[in-house]
Design a protein around this nucleic acid. Structure first.
Length: 456
RNA sequence: GGGCCCAUGGUGCAGCGGUCUAGCACAUUCGCCUGUCACGCGAAAGAUCGAGGGUUCGAAUCCCUUUGGGCCCGCCA
């Protein structure tokens, strides 16, 4: 008999159907047993005799039975299928389950972070965990859909690279057949190349940062939502595109997933028609005035400053989001375009949301000679950037810019999660690559995987 | 890399010098229950209180060392 998805079962009242799924809970009352069965679509209550109590939570099962209407006093308003139930005729245990290491059928998953991460397959059985990654999937979908609607073309950048895009030291080296290569810190240089063909491009890329950061908002491997656009009239075009992209993501979530927001007791960040925008120097003055802490000569906002400027944006403009612009040239990535009116500052921006950085972007240097000079000025060799980056700049490079947002960080902030690792399926950080790394481990020695062929 | 904090059955917590033969909730096992939907009721099993050392007549509790974990800062998305 063909399987029916649980969400479809209300259309089959009075008929016999066959469902497959996992056991969510079992309630035995002696002669009668109730159980909730869960599949990818929904949850349904089934009713059987005492033999049904043989099934246990998380067993994979298939059930055949008749869909009956419930009498009104037995309606369950919490379930989509709350006005029906299935009368079991026969059931089969497809695969039993061991006891899970914690209670996944509580409404809240009350488990410490290490336990949660050490038991990901089990924690994914909890609906709140699935909700997190449902939202994450919605964010990537919304990003993709919105940018495609704006004529952006998706591409895929490599992540094994010969040099480092940011020129910094925080890159993971890779032994590449005896040569030194790196894991890409971002798809930055490739997306700049790609705009010379498509004008507007985006990518959903893995990025790797060997920063020794142990915080609630950093990972060593994260997913970067990157966009880049050419023929801009002004860097403001890039800011506006970043702004509308974030709003498109919010709009998708509020349309399709407001139930998840309710379950997490959160609301989407407030937005204004025109997201407030401040130069860094102005923001620092405001923070100094409001906090009494003189940061007006700082080169960046510290985390407390970011929180303070968001409070300002909310009070003054009714927005949880605020753009901070014109970061100092010496603090910003080398490919950022210096403001012609003041070369000490770049035409760059961050979008601060709810007190943390959501997006970073800028107009880029698009003039070939200027770029060569810049690379030399930071002590790098142009030949290291020759292919494919510099090559592209010799063939008609328009004014351009772009932005990037961290997928896990946005997921974390939208759902109000304490730690970015909760918004990461299998987080990589200084202490964990699925397995725990000893804190005071031996110095690194490259050991090829045991199944790798010897190279000589 | 710098600072602060935590460690008790499977999970989450209480206990903070003697009454702890370590308590509670959930999970587990068994029994009872024909309307529950986080079912209920009863019982049982399950912990050498992270590890090592010390102080004390006496340590889960105080001190030191160590291991593991969490948070804040720097840096960033």
């Amino acid at each position: 008999m063909k399987r029916t998805l649980i969400s479809e079962t209300p259309n089959f009242i009075g008929q016999k159907v066959h469902i497959k799924g996992w056991v969510n809970s079992v309630r035995s009352h002696g002669k009668v047993t109730f159980a909730d069965i869960r599949d990818r679509s929904s949850l349904i209550q089934i009713v059987g005799d005492e033999k049904l109590a043989e099934i246990k939570p998380e067993y994979a099962v298939s059930i055949t039975g008749k869909i009956n209407p419930r009498s009104e006093k037995y309606f369950n308003p919490k379930l989509v299928t709350g006005q029906i139930e299935m009368e079991v005729e026969s059931f089969e245990i497809i695969s039993p389950s061991l006891d899970l290491p914690f209670d996944v059928h509580q409404e809240e998953l009350n488990v410490s972070l290490p336990v949660l991460l050490d038991n990901r397959p089990a924690s994914l059985r909890h609906s709140a965990t699935r909700d997190i990654f449902t939202i994450q999937a919605a964010i990537t979908n919304a990003f993709r859909e919105y940018l495609m609607s704006q004529d952006f073309t998706e591409f895929h950048a490599p992540t094994i690279v010969a040099g480092s895009s940011e020129g910094g030291s925080q890159v993971f080296p890779v032994d590449y057949f005896g040569y030194q290569a790196y894991l890409a810190q971002s798809p930055q240089l490739y997306k700049q190349v790609m705009i010379t063909a498509y004008e507007r491009v985006f990518t959903i890329a893995h990025a790797y940062r060997a920063e020794p950061s142990v915080t609630t908002r950093h990972l060593t491997e994260y997913v970067s939502l990157d966009a880049e656009m050419g023929f801009i009239d002004s860097w403001q075009d890039v800011v506006d595109m970043a702004d509308s992209t974030v709003k498109a993501i919010f709009s998708k979530i509020s349309q399709d997933y407001s139930d998840i927001l309710t379950r997490f007791s959160v609301t989407l960040p407030k937005t204004a028609d025109k997201t407030p925008q401040l130069k860094l120097s102005e923001a620092l003055k405001i923070v100094s005035q409001r906090s009494g802490r003189d940061v007006s000569h700082d080169l960046d906002l510290d985390p407390e400053g970011e929180r303070e400027i968001c409070r300002w944006a909310l009070e003054e403009h009714g927005s949880d989001l605020v753009f901070i612009t014109h970061f100092p040239t010496k603090k910003r990535a080398w490919y950022s375009y210096a403001d012609p009116q003041n070369p000490e500052e770049t035409l760059s921006f961050d979008l601060i949301g709810c007190g943390v950085e959501w997006i970073s972007g800028s107009q880029r240097i698009s003039d070939y000679q200027q770029l060569l000079d810049k690379i030399k000025a930071i002590g790098q060799k142009p030949e290291d950037y020759e292919y494919p980056y510099l090559q592209a700049f010799r063939y008609g490079m328009p004014p351009e810019g772009g932005f990037a947002l961290g997928l896990e960080r946005i997921t974390q902030n939208i759902l109000g999660l304490d730690n970015i690792r909760q918004a990461t399926l299998f987080p990589r950080d200084m202490e964990r690559i699925d397995v725990h790394l000893p804190k005071h481990g031996k110095p690194f020695v490259f050991v090829p995987p045991s199944n790798a062929k010897k190279n000589k």
